[in-house]
Design a protein around this nucleic acid. Structure first.
Lengths: 331, 331
DNA sequence: GTGAAAGCGCTAACAA
DNA sequence: TTGTTAGCGCTTTCAC
């Protein structure tokens, strides 16, 4: 297994000095076409690929953006990754992924990112209640530009780009009320973390002159089967509608409803949130709230790039959600 | 924005030489407890994080594994990523992701991986028919250990870990036949690429004394709406069952069936493939073929690590699929 | 036990 | 236009 070729080897084969080889390889001028060709031929022959680590040691930045994301298996995050990747690459940057997982790996990946000298970080926080936020302070020390996406940790002052979560559930609740659906249960992940969703629901109820009852808000951990069990409990109460704050959870509700022999939307209305693939591919296409994921992603990357290039500290942005009417709500 | 601390700064603050600082930081012996503490305190105070690029320049390897994967938004790949990540990290390696996308980005990411000096590559090929396979030769030149996962390119001799795809559809077809379901259509992505699936189907039909008719095999590009349109066409033929080679496609079939007012599984049996989340969360839990994704992932990583550590060239492995019986096939 | 110095692969400032 | 040289941050001999 011979050693990989270095610029030295290329220079030697081309019969030029290392710096001339470097110039030719990087397409800078000040090199004759002839020598340039000589060098590039050698590159070809030796299958030379520059060592980006060595290159970055001298350069100003690494042209790498780190993305902290909770879980690749969740389609909401999958879409984010894809959009961020495209956008970041359009700026000539490379995307480094830190999948923080359900446990608190955020700290670990932040260190990893710093070690790898990323130029900036986009941070999609975990939607669980975390109190150990030491790593935010850590990160702040390094003066690496970073933004939150889709959610934020209030312990940090970093700018964020997210959707108006409260408004989404407000709109959905209102939509149900307009259809004379009044007995609405709400299934969220965690009442503290998901307070914005709940407050939108509460607001719409209040405006309709209905009283808010905390017992109508249910919590379920992020596992399909758990969500389903709770859905079955809720169904026993015979509500007219069950709202959720994720399409995934809504799928669990729909399956539970089928198990109990309910016809959707005749016997029960169900609403998702996010408008990801789960809402689209379910056997009954799902009425849900759309977060403008693509726009959100373009914005964070743009903002981050502006900060990197011109030092402009980005503003936080709150984008508007919209309702997507499909077939799981009674008309 | 002050500069990031280097080992030099740490050494200076601790009042020791750079090399001593290095030893202390890396926990090597030959340093007094006292000086060690001095150094680590300085590390703490300066928020020092070693530059992994600089470190890797001297070291033997980068401890990075590159994973080439077609699409993060597809849950099948999402699961692979998660399992590979865990496994790779358990060996103390870092996972670098190359999302090759629907277009042919594989080449680009291979160059990227080589530039970043990954120690090994796990390659999940795109399931489209590609004939430009120059980059395989490219990759071979660098003598970087690599394996295919979940599928392989026949143009390469690299070892692979995959599931017996033919057997999966053979088992599924047989299962249907045993239930006296004989008029079975098969919806795949691409007949050439998906030939293994088709051949399993063909084999089961043959063994049952039924003739294979190519017109019963349909193709659909990888888009939900396209798949749905084709499903509607197939449904017009009033088959007893529609098999697919992905749970995602099966979802499209199920939705089309609902649109056409068919009751599942009474009027039509539908089968998925892969047993990913789509099969589980659909309103009607789906009968499907399971690929042992987790085992596959553990195996590739193990094999790759054995090659890196002991130079053992891995064997190719073909794992057994299994049937998962749920509710979309008539009993 | 500790420090000085070489060198990993590359770029850039300067000299020729 | 090309070559020489310094140095990026780190690890690792090899002296002391």
């Amino acid at each position: 297994m011979e050693k990989r070729a270095t610029i030295k080897d290329v220079a030697k084969m081309a019969g030029v000095s290392i710096s001339t080889a470097s110039l030719a390889i990087n397409g800078k001028d000040g090199v004759t076409e002839k020598t340039k060709k000589l060098v590039l031929d050698a590159v070809e022959k030796l299958s030379y690929q520059p060592d980006s680590a060595a290159r970055n040691m001298r350069a100003s930045g690494t042209k790498v953006i780190g993305l902290l994301i909770p879980d690749v298996r969740n389609n909401f995050y999958g879409e984010i990754i894809e959009h961020i990747r495209r956008e970041v690459e359009s700026y000539g940057f490379f995307l480094l992924l830190g999948i923080t997982g359900s446990s608190n790996n955020e700290k670990k990946y932040i260190s990893e990112f710093i070690s790898r000298r990323v130029d900036g970080i986009i941070w999609v926080p975990q939607l669980t209640y975390v109190n150990d936020m030491e790593h935010i302070k850590e990160l702040d020390k390094y003066h690496i530009p970073y933004l939150f996406l889709a959610a934020d940790y209030e312990q940090s002052n970093a700018p964020f780009v997210m959707c108006n979560l409260k408004k989404g559930s407000y709109m959905m609740t209102k939509y149900l009320l307009e259809r004379d659906i009044r007995d609405i249960k709400f299934l969220v992940g965690d009442k503290r973390v998901d307070e914005p969703y709940v407050s939108g629901y509460r607001k719409a109820l209040g405006e309709a002159g209905l009283s808010y009852d905390e017992r109508n808000v249910y919590e379920s951990p992020y596992h399909f089967e758990d969500a389903q069990k709770i859905a079955i409990e809720i169904i026993k109460e015979k509500p007219e509608a069950i709202m959720t704050n994720s399409d995934f959870t809504a799928c669990a509700v729909l399956q539970a409803a089928r198990q109990k022999g309910l016809s959707i939307p005749r016997d029960l209305s169900v609403c998702g949130y996010d408008d990801v693939i789960y809402a689209t591919i379910n056997q009954i296409p799902m009425t849900t709230v759309r977060q403008p994921i693509e726009r959100m992603c373009k914005l964070v990357v743009n903002n981050l790039m502006n900060q990197l290039r011109y030092g402009i500290v980005p503003d936080s942005v709150i984008l508007e959600p919209s309702l997507v009417i499909r077939d799981t709500v009674r008309n």
